[in-house]
């Protein structure tokens, strides 16, 4: 018996409110981020991730206040992503109370940024977020490429090779989101997750597509991930984090259960 697998509820935050959409449309308001963070903490969440999807940069200050308030009330690890482009952005979030930052678009635009960030703040607080989509031609081997700008912009970069490169550059953890599955409730892309997790030395978080509790089990058993991230199954009250943990534990996965 040893290290537990983690469940990480994810809060997409737009101008201070938690929202959730399906493939970036039909965005539904899911509530106040501080109240939701406290609810998940009480339910036994192992960590929380906040992704700032606010379009306009002048509203980004809102996110800092959200992090500050959550960090004063919730004593579990907090990751913040969205709009992290400069060393100063990282420092602001860490000072506000975040433990880790997730870097996505800025890593693709300038991979050296990941190196600089890891050297400055330590790998343990640098998560590289990878948004990947299947691009394999029929009858060819499986292949994924990374997309940026919330999945709208293709890059032509191979996702598995990119993952290995980001670990070499100092990423302490990878957050892998399947753009094909995100918001579909059809389960993680376990082949994608396994391809990455089996290759790299650092923990991998599965993201994108959770529709039921068995999908979380698959993320660990089939996707070989160290943590599973989900949003809508928790936001709209379908399941509590506690129910999810009990289900995973009953399927033989080591979990933190009080």
């Amino acid at each position: 018996m040893g290290l537990a697998k983690r469940i990480i509820p994810c809060l997409d935050v737009d101008d201070g409110r938690v929202v959730k959409g399906v493939k970036f449309v039909n965005i539904r308001d899911a509530g106040n981020p501080i109240e939701i963070a406290q609810r998940y903490d009480e339910q036994g969440a192992d960590e929380l991730t906040f992704l700032d999807i606010t379009a306009s940069s002048d509203k980004r200050e809102t996110m800092i206040h959200v992090v500050e308030e959550v960090a004063g009330k919730v004593f579990i690890p907090l990751t913040v992503g969205g709009g992290i482009r400069k060393v100063a952005d990282i420092r602001k979030m860490l000072n506000a109370g975040a433990d880790k930052v997730a870097i996505n678009t800025a890593a693709v635009a300038n991979p050296e940024f990941v190196k600089e960030a890891a050297e400055k703040f330590g790998s343990q607080c640098i998560v590289v977020a990878i948004d990947a989509k299947r691009v394999n031609a029929p009858s060819k081997a499986l292949r994924w490429e990374i997309f940026t700008h919330g999945g709208r912009k293709e890059t032509g970069i191979d996702a598995v090779q990119w993952a290995a490169k980001m670990v070499n550059y100092g990423a302490g953890e990878l957050l892998v989101t399947s753009m094909d599955r995100d918001g579909t409730k059809s389960g993680f892309d376990n082949e994608l997750n396994r391809s990455i997790s089996d290759l790299v030395t650092v923990p991998v978080i599965a993201s994108g597509g959770v529709g039921n509790l068995e999908h979380l089990v698959d993320g660990i058993k089939e996707g070989h991930c160290d943590a599973v991230l989900a949003a809508s199954i928790f936001h709209f009250g379908e399941f509590t984090v506690g129910q999810a943990k009990k289900h995973m534990a009953a399927r033989g996965i080591e979990m933190r259960i009080d």
Binding site: M1, G2, L3, A4, K5, R6, D46, S123, Q124, G172, E173, T201, V202, P203, V204, H224, D226, A227, R256
Partner: peptide
């Protein structure tokens, strides 16, 4: 050690990250 495994013979990731006993 980079080549550590657990009782189920799964490779252990580094950093050791998460909730342990």
């Amino acid at each position: 050690d980079a080549n550590m495994t657990n009782a189920q013979n799964e490779r252990l990731k580094i950093p050791h990250m998460g909730w342990n006993k």
